[in-house]
Design a protein around this nucleic acid. Structure first.
Length: 284
DNA sequence: TAACAGGGTTATC
DNA sequence: GATAACCCTGTT
């Protein structure tokens, strides 16, 4: 017998299809109407309805989903208080329902380390290969359907892996970046502890985090801002990638004033990215 | 077949 | 600040 658990949130406020396929997370998969993926040690299954989300995550662990999907914030209300220009408003209307996730810090560091000059499909392939090879398997059954997934590998599980073994997963030149990152995090635990302590922090925490992240080999301004936004939940972080750069040149004559987006420029960035990538069909 | 670009970064000049 | 190189894969 299966017990149903529901999260009361409208599809307009949190759209799983858009959020989980908007380029901020690379590990979620969908079969039929079911999204499934691993958060912490739980293989989560989610089914979207107009006014709620059905899930296998029990009530006593519900806070994990609330944190992960940033359900402690109402995006519809927040955006309505901004005075957006026409282009940003268009992007919002296309992207409405996207939330910024609070992803695992180490996982986000690694996945976005893999993202440089790479395609969505290949990033997913690399990350999934990494989890399948070095992470623990999880299985669950929900509404009569079996699901399986893998926990993201721990630092300890990756610390002795060689560049050539990482290369087998298709990382290309990023293999040595990963060896370097894992080695440094393993030998100095306080670096990650310090970054994690700044999650949900203020402007100073955001700037400090980006500074530390940039000191990793293979992590530059774009990737560090992605990590700051998608793991650190610093909503003012504004990663500028090729899509955003094209938008700034085409729609804003080469200069974008982030102050118009209050302290949530990162959310607007994700709306713009999703709209633009959607146009170019970058998610395939 | 060859050239190009994909959620960039680095080293070098 | 500009430029080439970096790994590899799918597309034109």
């Amino acid at each position: 017998m299966s017990v149903l658990y529901n999260i009361l949130v409208s599809k307009e406020e949190l759209d799983l299809d858009k959020t989980l396929d908007s380029g901020q997370a690379f590990r979620w998969r969908k079969t039929g109407d079911y999204w499934f993926g691993v958060i912490k040690d739980i293989l989560c299954v989610l089914k979207q309805h107009d006014n709620c989300i059905e899930t296998n995550v029990p009530v006593e662990r519900r806070q994990i989903l609330i944190d992960y999907f940033n359900l402690d914030m109402n995006y519809t209300d927040t955006i309505s208080k901004l005075d957006l220009d026409k282009y940003a408003l268009d992007c919002y209307n296309i992207s409405k329902g996207i939330h910024i996730l609070r992803q695992d810090y180490f996982e986000t560091m690694v996945t976005f380390l893999m993202s440089s000059c790479n395609t969505m499909v290949r990033i997913r392939s690399i990350v999934n290969g990494l989890c399948k090879t070095y992470g623990n398997k999880l299985e669950t059954e929900f509404q009569g359907i079996k699901f399986e997934g893998y926990k993201f590998p721990t630092i300890d599980a990756l610390v002795d892996i060689s560049e050539s073994d990482f290369a087998k997963l298709g990382m290309g030149y990023r293999d040595k970046y990963l060896v370097s990152m894992v080695s440094r995090l393993h030998s100095n635990q306080s670096i990650l502890d310090n970054l994690i302590s700044k999650i949900n922090g203020d402007e100073t925490d955001r700037i400090d985090s980006v500074w530390v992240l940039n000191s990793f080999n293979g992590v530059g301004p774009k990737v560090s801002n992605c990590i700051s936004l998608f793991a650190g939940h610093h909503l003012s972080a504004f990663p500028i990638d090729t899509h955003i750069n094209r938008i700034i040149n085409r729609e804003y004559n080469g200069f974008i004033d982030l102050k118009r987006f209050g302290n949530i420029a990162g959310i607007i960035q994700q709306y713009m990215f999703y709209s633009e990538a959607f146009k170019y069909n970058s998610f395939k």
